[in-house]
Design a protein around this nucleic acid. Structure first.
Lengths: 239, 239
DNA sequence: GCTGCTGTGTGCGGGAGCGTACAGACTCAA
DNA sequence: TTGAGTCTGTACGCTCCCGCACACAGCAGC
């Protein structure tokens, strides 16, 4: 029974080589993590990374209308605030204590120094990875909350951003696989878009006629992802 | 117009400092990426990372019953195979060419060398990050395909794994927020679990009576996540 | 031409979960 | 003890999407 909380209750810290742990230890600050406490807010620059010991933290995405969805959950097996060392400094999600308890925190600067000895290739890879993470998280949110029609628009836009030109070669069947929905659902969605003059569809060839129109029909998820790609990847590497 | 494909068409490669790019360049191999081509299979060790130039790649999770869901999409803004440099070597997802085109690939060893100069703290952080990514990806899949009841079980198990003891303090309202569903839906799900003798519920206190029973009721997502945490994090850092 | 295959359109019953509304049950403080 | 507040249970109509079935249209090859 460890009554005095120890950083070693966090299993990431516990498996570090002793030398490394001893180096970090003086900088670890014990913190109380009461239920509902917000460790960081969406879009805010993080000041610390948190290593939960007896608490659980939820990573939540809060939508514009206030509805939310959990992206992931972090307990004593992990660390909250990976954006700090991935190089993004912030994320579009919020971290909330889901189960009260203790933890330790480390100033952002300290963890960043560990990563600072590495070269530009690694930094770029990590920043990209964070952008990818955002896309995954937003996919989860979108799957939960948005209509097939909105998701279809999002998907078309994400694909379009990665192509030159405005035509994509893709059957409705394949799109359905990607979105995890029925083929018939894609048919109906595509028909609506076609009727609205936004796309033209013909046996595996989609031509986007009105990109702005698609953006107007999709959900916020697309914009969130696009913005993060723009923010994280330099020199006009946008989504 | 660049008729001869250039690695610089990939925007990650394009923003690298010239010195770094020149170092990688001789090792970049141009590859054709035909529609439907599987770059890597779920669970298989990756041999290369791929930098798409004119192609688009889908990261898909394929469920046991064959249904699938796209986790994310990667085009010339990114790289396929982040598990290689994150240290995981493999992922539970499959990478499929969604739009035919070209790309460049790099032997895994080459990208790993870039990361090998870093210390154990960073490696651990990255491996953890990959585990977290898996959790997010699986959340997306689960949101798409599984019932509220299954998701409730998954959520309870993930929380339980991060707690000592078998009681969690959590109102149905909060769980609903996490899962992104109605509170009433959680009520109904919890009642079923209680009727089956798996949990006991009382005003914000849940006691898990039959963990194995919960595991039997949840979907594959829980096991996938748990297994990846076990695999990626050493020394019995499980989910 | 005909035949087959692939891709798209359509219709219908059913179920899961939503929005809404409200009722009971427990807890705490005045 | 009484009332207010919080948490949980129940009910009902509705919508979106699913599963299934089938028709049709374009495009290949012979």
């Amino acid at each position: 029974m460890s009554n005095a909380p120890s950083p070693l209750q966090n299993r990431l810290l516990a498996v570090l080589p002793e030398i490394e742990f001893e180096r970090l230890k003086p900088q670890l600050e014990a913190v109380d993590m009461p239920l509902g406490h917000v460790l960081y807010e969406s879009g805010r620059t993080l000041s610390h990374v948190y290593f939960p010991t007896t608490s659980i933290v939820s990573l939540l995405y809060v939508m514009e209308n206030g509805a939310s969805a959990e992206i992931a959950v972090v307990g004593n097996e992990g660390v909250v605030g990976i954006a700090l060392f991935m190089g993004g400094e912030s994320t579009p999600s919020r971290a909330v204590v889901q189960s009260a308890g203790q933890g330790f925190r480390l100033r952002g600067q300290a963890i960043k120094e560990v990563f600072s000895r590495s070269g530009p290739v690694m930094h770029l890879m990590l920043r990209y990875t964070q952008a990818l993470i955002t896309q995954m998280a937003q996919t989860a949110v979108c799957n939960r909350h948005h209509s097939l029609d909105q998701q279809l628009c999002r998907w078309l836009l994400l694909s379009l951003d990665r192509l030159q030109g405005n035509e994509l070669v893709m059957t409705q069947e394949l799109i359905a696989n990607m979105l995890g929905v029925r083929r018939e659902g894609v048919t109906e969605g595509a028909l609506k878009l076609q009727a609205a003059g936004l796309i033209r569809y013909a046996r595996g060839h989609i031509t986007v006629l009105d990109r702005v129109g698609l953006e107007a029909r999709t959900c916020e998820c697309y914009a969130v992802v696009r913005k993060e790609y723009g923010r994280l990847l330099p020199d006009r590497i946008a989504t």
